[in-house]
Amino acid sequence: MEIQVDTRGAATSGPFFEDAEGFNMPLAPDSANRRIPLGDFPTGPEVGSILPNIVATDQAGNTVDLHADRAGQPAVVVFYRSAVW
């Protein structure tokens, strides 16, 4: 999948840059931390498939096995950029 960078709005001048949907940010659209795809981009496991298991460390330092931890309950799993920035 060839992923294009969405540079629409790059022509607006700083200090605030407006993207194609009118969101204003102090970052040019080609900044790494604001670079967004134009058109298709990968979104991982498909609807109807089993979510691959995740084993990772939680905020308390414990190892969490997601499918075991949720103990048969439904869940929402969010992938986000960072809790720091």
Partner: peptide, 10 residues
């Protein structure tokens, strides 16, 4: 009863 997990590279 819905569990919420949030994963990041932090």
């Amino acid at each position: 009863g819905v569990r919420l997990y949030a994963i990041s590279y932090d």
